[in-house]
Design a protein around this nucleic acid. Structure first.
Length: 578
RNA sequence: CGGGGCGUAGCGCAGUCUGGUAGCGCACUAGACUGGGGGUCUAGUGGUCGUCGGUUCAAAUCCGGUCGCCCCGACCA
């Protein structure tokens, strides 16, 4: 295409409502425009990049035996009522009424619809397994949409659902998708890691997230340096520890510690370290007061707390409410002598030889607390967030910490939805049986943001070839004479051999063309300048930051050959062109 | 929902405290020069100052309501 006739409105300055790199660059380079919070239009470049991602996803899904369908975006409430999710999904679900006041929602996910499809048409185990997928615009009314395409309310998702006759079959389907996802992210040219994940509200017993590694990622993950264990910190289990021997010289005693509601102020007053204290985190668990104790320097993992307490809703407690309900003063809550409260404590506390904790009395703490001696009646569990340096739960290795952007998620669902919606088939033994299901999502539009977070520099985007909206930009420095004729010749030759090329035929100064090209992120820029008369042009590789002087003769064919490989994932290198 | 910030030309901003002709840079239009990293000059186009109401001779500016946007947290996958 000729850039002069393309709608690529690039901006010199980043819009003020964008802070994240990928958000700024997507807007500045003319890929997207915001319409409302978390709702974006895709401009021509954006559409092309999205289509390339979709194409790779389709190819790999099809290869894995999944079949594409398209389900409605607007879903009747009755299906969601049937599955039981209508009352529990909350305000994230965009609900609507039609002219007859009948209720609907805009699908944030499609388990209900796909189960309805399956139960209507799949009658026999002979029809199984089946895996149906779609690529569709979803809507989730996020509490806080942010960072452009990273967490939008409206976004494009690939969602797949597998139906199997047995658990073993479902596991095989899960494995197929897991492998397909690895291929997809590999082909997209992303540095990613599959990690074990919490199953959240979707339910089921097995789940992996596919995380694109980036410092700006929302998710914290840990990975072992000795084996292939990797997990979201929300999930990463930490082992119980043996009780430490008594480290205090005498019995626990209460001392006055005025104005020490925080661990920091307490340590300052007593001259101790946070890891010698016990922190109390106050919760409201299904309307009951609960307190979780962790070592003073640790973070509580609420997902683990929720599981340990076996409650449905868990929120940090309002201090006043907590005081009124339990009679204990927030800021001075300790593990000994608790009242009217459910108590749990992290395993790690057992390994503390002696500790400081609240005395359950205002302005007082208890010192020389020995968990092994003084907390015998407390329930211990794995409650804290894993961090770098923690022991691996699988091997003697240690965990390392990373940040990641979740671009894919696979779940083994079991019969959760098939049971709720009475979706059955006739098994080999003639008995009615519920489908074993799995569901598998990929955030198509989020991939664009994640790819940029991982591939950018101060000048702009450095797309992997697999995602780039165009592969080559031909930049004639002058729009006349040999420079123009050589540029036109090369451009035509590139199109001829199937390379996605553009020619910057705008009457702009070189600097403008360079800056736009760098910003937009074409993997290859071909500068046709002063040496055009010798049929020599400059080939710049955006990602590698390399410039090569090459002859135009045979260049298009050479690029076409190299592109065939690069479209499959491998990065573009100078060696490939020399 | 809690905390913080912001709404003035297509984009980025000043002006608001201390009420009095709505400004700057970029972009855009026309012409000339220029031509390897957002060039120069000349002449232009473009704004109900988010919105509703109040105070005032007079409101972008003061007061009240409301809508929207961004960031942190809570929440969610």
């Amino acid at each position: 295409m000729r850039i002069k006739s393309l709608h690529i409105p690039t901006l010199r300055e980043p819009p003020k409502d964008a802070e994240t790199v990928s958000h700024q660059l997507l807007v500045r380079a003319g890929y997207i425009r915001r319409l409302a919070a978390g709702i974006y239009s895709f401009l021509p470049l954006g559409v092309r990049a999205v289509e390339k991602v979709k194409r790779i996803v389709r190819e790999e899904m099809d290869r894995a035996g999944a079949q594409e369908v398209v389900m409605p975006a607007v879903i009747p409430a009755e299906l969601w009522i049937e599955s039981g999710r209508w009352p529990v999904y909350g305000p994230e679900l965009l609900r609507l009424k039609d002219r007859k006041q009948a209720e609907y929602c805009v699908g944030p996910t499609h388990e209900e619809v796909v189960v309805d499809l399956a139960r209507k048409d799949i009658r026999s185990y002979k029809q199984l397994p089946v895996n149906l997928y779609q690529i569709q615009t979803k809507f989730r009314d996020e509490i806080r949409p942010r960072a452009g395409l990273m967490r939008g309310r409206e976004f494009v998702m690939k969602d797949a659902y597998s139906f199997d006759a047995s658990i073993a079959g479902a596991h095989a389907s899960y494995k197929l998708m897991y492998d397909a996802y690895c291929c997809i992210f590999e082909r997209l040219g992303l540095v990613f890691r599959p990690v074990e994940a919490d199953t959240g509200n979707i339910g089921g017993s097995m789940s992996h997230e596919f995380q694109v590694l980036a410092d700006s990622g929302e998710d914290a993950i840990v990975a072992c340096d000795g084996c292939d264990f990797a997990a979201n910190v929300e999930k990463a289990p930490l082992a119980a520890q043996p009780f430490a021997p008594i480290g205090a010289t005498g019995p626990a005693r209460v001392i006055d510690t005025p104005g020490t509601k925080t661990i920091e102020s307490l340590c300052k007053l007593l001259g101790c370290r946070p890891d010698q204290t016990i922190k109390a985190v106050l919760y409201m668990a299904d309307d009951q007061a609960a307190v979780a104790f962790v070592r003073g320097d640790r973070e509580v993992n609420e997902i683990k707390v929720k599981k340990a307490l076996a409650c449905a809703n868990l929120h940090l407690a309002d201090a006043e409410w907590f005081a009124k309900t339990t009679g204990m003063p927030p800021g001075y809550v300790g593990a000994i002598g608790t009242t009217n409260v459910q108590v749990i404590a992290d395993f790690e506390i057992t390994a503390m030889p002696s500790a400081v904790c609240g005395a359950n009395a205002k302005q007082q703490h208890r010192v020389d607390v020995v968990p092994a001696r003084d907390m015998a009646d407390v329930a211990f569990a794995d409650l804290r967030m894993a961090i770098a340096g923690d022991p691996c739960p699988r091997c003697p290795g240690k965990l390392r910490a990373f940040r990641g952007i979740e671009v894919g998620h696979v779940f083994y669902l079991g019969q959760k939805y098939s049971k709720a919606m009475h979706a059955t088939f006739l098994a080999e033994d003639g008995k009615e049986q519920h489908f074993e299901m799995g569901c598998y999502g990929i955030g198509i539009t989020r991939i664009l943001a994640a790819a940029i977070e991982q591939n950018h520099d101060a000048r702009g985007i450095r797309w992997p070839v697999a995602i780039a909206p165009y592969e080559v930009a031909v930049l004639p420095m002058a729009l006349e004479g040999e420079q123009l004729t050589v540029a036109e010749e090369l451009y035509a030759a590139l199109l001829q051999v199937g390379v996605a090329a553009v020619i910057d035929d705008r009457d702009e100064r070189p600097g403008v063309k360079f800056n736009d090209a760098d910003l937009i992120g074409y993997p290859i820029q071909i500068v046709v300048g002063k040496r055009a008369g010798e049929r020599v042009v400059e080939v710049k590789l955006r990602h590698a930051g390399v410039k090569l002087e090459l002859s135009v003769d045979g260049l298009a064919d050479k690029l076409a050959r190299v592109m065939v490989t690069c479209r499959l994932g491998p990065a573009l290198t100078a060696e490939a062109l020399s």
